[in-house]
Amino acid sequence: MTMAQKWVYKATPTIANLNDTRDLAAQECFLAKAAHERPNEQGHHARADHVKDVLVGDVIHFYFREIGTTADNALPIGSFEVVGASPVPGRFTWPVEETHLARVLDPAFDARLQKMGYGRDPKLGFTTGWLLRRLDQHPPPYDRTWFPGNHVLRKYS
């Protein structure tokens, strides 16, 4: 049996605002995340960094950083366990293509995600993300060194 890993994830308003991001995680138990990056000049869709490494049972410490704030400043959204089933029947199918992401099946929920700014996976053509269960713990204090460059998902040690 493998030990659960811990991750840190940083969202910014380039996709969705703080309220939508927080409500999606806290109320809908979902963190939207594509399995693939947009295609490069040769049309290749690289797998998004670390997406295949996040497994059911892992913990994601989730933060939101507003554009224009200092790099040292991010709001904690919460700590969540990645789960493999949704409490809403028919909303998701799981897993997606060698990951522990879920595919959104519910057309109304998918339309809501699209309206918020979450796009479909550029290779797969449908919306994906992790199913979550909120934990009764606070995320560790935010540290900007966790996210060099444009990284949004990193292993927490």
Rank of each mutant, 00 (worst) to 15 (best):
Gly68Val: 10
Gly84Ser: 08
Phe80Glu: 05
Gly68Arg: 09
His61Ser: 11
Ala74His: 10
Leu55Pro: 01
Phe64Glu: 03
Glu66Ser: 15
Glu81Asn: 05
Asp58Trp: 01
Val59Pro: 04
Ile60Gln: 02
Pro87Gln: 08
Val54Pro: 00
Ile77Thr: 04
Glu81Leu: 08
Ser86Ile: 06
Phe62His: 11
Val54Lys: 03
Gly68Thr: 11
Asn73Pro: 02
Val56Asn: 01
Ile67Ser: 14
Ile60Met: 07
Phe64Lys: 10
Ser86Met: 05
Asn73Cys: 14
Phe62Cys: 10
Pro76Trp: 03
Ala71Cys: 08
Ser79Arg: 04
Val59Gln: 08
Val54Ala: 06
Val83Tyr: 00
Val59Cys: 05
Phe62Pro: 05
Phe64Ser: 09
Val56Cys: 03
Ile67Arg: 13
Val83Cys: 05
Glu81Pro: 07
Glu66Lys: 13
Thr70Asp: 11
Tyr63Trp: 13
Gly84Tyr: 05
Tyr63His: 10
Glu66Met: 15
His61Val: 01
Asp58Val: 06
Ser86Ala: 10
Ile77Leu: 15
Leu75His: 15
Asp72His: 12
Phe62Val: 05
Val83Gly: 01
Gly78Phe: 02
Gly68Asp: 13
Gly78Ile: 04
Glu66Ile: 11
Arg65Asp: 01
Phe64Thr: 06
Thr69Met: 12
Val82Pro: 02
Arg65Leu: 08
Thr69Gly: 06
Arg65Cys: 07
Ala85Gly: 04
His61Gly: 00
Tyr63Leu: 06
Asp72Thr: 15
Ala71Val: 13
Asp58Met: 08
Glu81Tyr: 03
Gly84Asn: 11
Val54Leu: 07
His61Arg: 06
Val54Gly: 02
Ala71Pro: 05
Val54Thr: 03
Val56Ile: 13
Ala71Met: 07
Val83Ala: 04
Val82Glu: 00
Gly78Gln: 07
Ser86Gln: 06
Leu55Asp: 06
Ser79Thr: 10
Thr70Ala: 13
Ile67Val: 10
Ala85Val: 09
Thr69Ala: 13
Phe64Pro: 00
Val83Trp: 01
Gly57Asn: 04
Ile77Tyr: 06
Pro76Phe: 01
Val82Ser: 00
Glu66Trp: 11
Asn73Phe: 12
Leu55Ala: 12
Ile77Trp: 02
Thr70Lys: 15
Ala71Trp: 12
Glu66Gly: 13
Ile60Lys: 03
Gly57Cys: 07
Thr70Ile: 08
Asp72Leu: 10
Ile67Ala: 15
Ser86Pro: 04
Glu81Asp: 02
Ile67Asp: 15
Ser86Lys: 01
Pro76Ser: 15
Ser86Leu: 02
Ile67Tyr: 11
Glu66Ala: 15
Glu66Pro: 03
Val59Gly: 02
Pro76Gln: 13
Phe64Cys: 03
Gly78Ala: 09
Gly68Phe: 11
Gly84Asp: 14
Asp72Val: 09
Ile77Gln: 08
Ile77Lys: 11
Asp58Leu: 12
Ala71Tyr: 12
His61Trp: 04
Pro76Gly: 11
Val56Thr: 07
Pro87Met: 11
